[in-house]
Amino acid sequence: MKTVKVGLGTCGISAGGEKVYKAFQDELKENPNAFVLKETGCIGMCYSEVLIEIKNGSDESVFYSEVTPDRVGEIVEKAILSDDTIEEWLAVKPDNKQNFIDNQTRIVLRNCGIIDPGSIDEYIERGGYEGAKKALTTMTSEDVIDDVIKSGLKGRGGGGFPTGVKWNFTRGAKGDKKYIICNADEGDPGAFMDRSILEGDPNAVLEGMIIAGYAIGSDAAYIYCRAEYPKAIARLRQAIAQAKKKNFLGDNIFGTNFTFNIKIKEGAGALVCGEETALIASIEGKRGMPKFRPPFPAISGLWEKPTNINNVETFANVPWIILNGGDAYAAYGTEDSKGTKVFAMAGKV
C-alpha cells in the first residue's frame, strides 16, 4: 500500500497544505483502503509547497510540488491507484541530476519531512531517544561533555561558542539548582531553521536537552519560544506530553535516578529577548532588559542559579553526536567549524 505524506509545517500550511490534506481525507472516505495518509514537517523545499510525498511499498518515493486541492483527485487516480507518474507536477524531475535534497547531509534535519512530528513512536522508530538512553545508562556526565567537545559542535545561535566547553562551565559552577534553557526566540530576518526543526522534529530538541541536563546536573529546563511560532509551540507541547508518558521526562528516566522536566515559556514579542540575559529576565517575568556580563549565566543566570543556554539547532545535533560519537560529527565540516549547519533561504533563490 502506498503512503501519502503531506508537508504541514508553517510553510506548507500557509501555502494551503491543510486544504490539500483535507482533500486527501475526502478521497479516503470514498475509498478507505486506497492509501495511508500522514502529515509531516517541513520537507525542505518551501518554494514549491504544498509538497507531498508518495511512497510505494518498496520505499521508493516521488514528490509532487505545488499541489492544490483540485489536483488531488488526479494524483490519487494516476499516481496512487495506478503506477503512473504525472511528470509535469513532479517536484524533482527525473532528468534533474542536481537533486536539491540528495546533495544534502542531514544530521539536524534527519527526521524533518520524514516522520510525523506528532508521533513520538515514529521518532523512536528512527533511533529516537537512543542517544539519551546511551548517555544516561552507559556514560558518565564527563564522558558526555568530552564527546560533545570532541565533536567540535559550536553554538548554532550565532555566537559560535564551543558547546561542550559551555556545558562544562555550568557543570562546574557552584549551586544546588541548575537550569537549562533552549533559546527558540529565532528572530533574525529571513531565518526559519529553528522553526523547521521545532515543527518537524520536536523530540530531537527535547532529547538534546535531556542529554545536556544529564551532563550538567540540571533537572529543570525551559524552552523560550516566540509566540509568533504557534505551530512550533503546539508541537513542543504535544512532544513533551508524549515524552512524559514514555518516561523520557520526569523521574527515574531509563530506570536511573535522573530527573528532568521541561517547561515552555512563550515570548511576548521583543526581538531583544533573543539575547540571553534579556531572555532570562523575560522568563522571570520582567521587562526583557539585557544585563552586563559577567557574571555569565553559567555562573548566575535564571533566578541567579547557574544556567546553560543553547539554541534549538545546537540541541538537535546532540542526540546524533552521542549516538554516533564526537569523531563522526567532526568528520563533517571545515577545519575550524565542525559538523553540519542548517540554512534557510528565502527571496529570489
Binding site: T10, S14, Y47, E49, G187, F192, A346
Partner: peptide, 22 residues
C-alpha cells in the same frame, strides 16, 4: 504590523487571525 512570522518563502505574507495568506 508584525516582524517576521517565519514563512519568508511565501513573502509578502499577512495573517488574518490565525489564517496565513502568502
Amino acid at each position: 504590523s508584525v516582524a517576521c512570522i517565519g514563512c519568508c518563502s511565501l513573502a509578502p505574507v499577512i495573517l488574518i487571525n490565525d489564517e496565513t495568506y502568502g
